[in-house]
């Protein structure tokens, strides 16, 4: 029998029928010897069954006449760009998912080598920015008018001495801030706005064990994150400004944050 070490990756392969048949016995023995992995396998199996059950009835539905007509040539085919607005519903779903944001952020800290810690920080910061910077009336939990309380509250919750950077020299005024989940930890989000209504946000979390810095863009032409990771904390500045401008603002913000932490 071939002996090899199994990992969580094999749980997915086994579930999806991709595990070679001759490894199955050894895999089952490994599962039996690892209760935690076995529980995970059981859970994923149940989730998959639930997913299949949730969509099973679609196959039994009568096919809408309009779809049959397209194939049978009874509707003139338009070669032009898609006319339908189905993607709007997909966009709305992004907003509706705001309720599940904590889960989304927690879920990002999953497994796999695809995203190292800095990607995770940047993804979390961008996700928060996309959702909250678009909010007109509910963008922040504590407004800038209550700045002292905002700083004390976020410092206590996140566990860092946070001083909201003054970015007026860069044309940005503090709007306020909010507390967010970040993986196992918590994050502070500070929102700023310029006189044209352009918003940037500052995302600070204590969850970090490595040193790194860089720029991260989740989607082409979407908001960018400029981030720093130090042992003990991470910081990302997110916005849709031109890259050079964002970098300048981010450096100013980071410098002041560091000074605040040390004060």
């Amino acid at each position: 029998m071939i002996r090899r070490d199994f990992s969580e990756r094999d749980i997915h392969m086994a579930l999806d029928g991709e595990l070679p048949a001759d490894e199955r016995t050894a895999y089952d023995a490994w599962l039996d010897a690892n209760p935690e992995m076995k529980a995970r396998s059981t859970r994923f199996t149940a989730d998959r069954a639930a997913l299949q059950a949730a969509f099973a009835s679609v196959l039994d539905e009568t096919v809408p006449v309009r779809l049959r007509k397209v194939v049978l040539g009874e509707t003139p085919v338009k070669a032009a760009a898609p006319r339908s607005r189905w993607w709007l519903s997909a966009a709305a779903a992004v907003l509706l998912a705001a309720g599940g944001l904590s889960g989304y952020l927690a879920g990002i800290g999953g497994i796999g080598q695809e995203d190292p810690a800095e990607d995770r920080l940047a993804e979390q910061a961008i996700a928060a920015h996309v959702i909250y910077a678009a909010e007109k009336r509910h963008a922040v939990e504590v407004p800038a008018s209550d700045k002292d309380h905002l700083q004390t509250w976020l410092s206590n919750r996140v566990g860092l001495k946070l001083v909201a950077p003054d970015l007026t020299a860069n044309g940005f005024q503090l709007v306020g801030g909010r507390l967010l989940p970040a993986g196992e930890s918590k994050a502070a989000m500070l929102l700023y706005e310029d006189d044209k209504g352009e918003r940037i946000s500052l995302f600070v979390t204590t969850e970090s064990t490595e040193n790194a810095k860089g720029t991260y863009m989740a989607a082409q032409d979407g908001p960018q994150a400029v981030y720093w990771l130090d042992k003990g904390y991470g910081c990302a500045v997110v916005g849709s400004l031109p890259h050079e401008q964002l970098t300048v603002v981010a450096k100013s913000a980071y410098g002041q944050l560091l000074a605040g932490l040390a004060s």
Binding site: E8, D47, G100, G103, G107, G110, G112, Q113
Partner: peptide, 18 residues
């Protein structure tokens, strides 16, 4: 594979939250 694994983890987290 990485997307499947991370998708399942994310789904599990969301269901637990609910």
């Amino acid at each position: 594979m990485s997307r499947i694994a991370r998708g399942r983890e994310e789904l599990r987290g969301l269901l637990d939250d609910t």
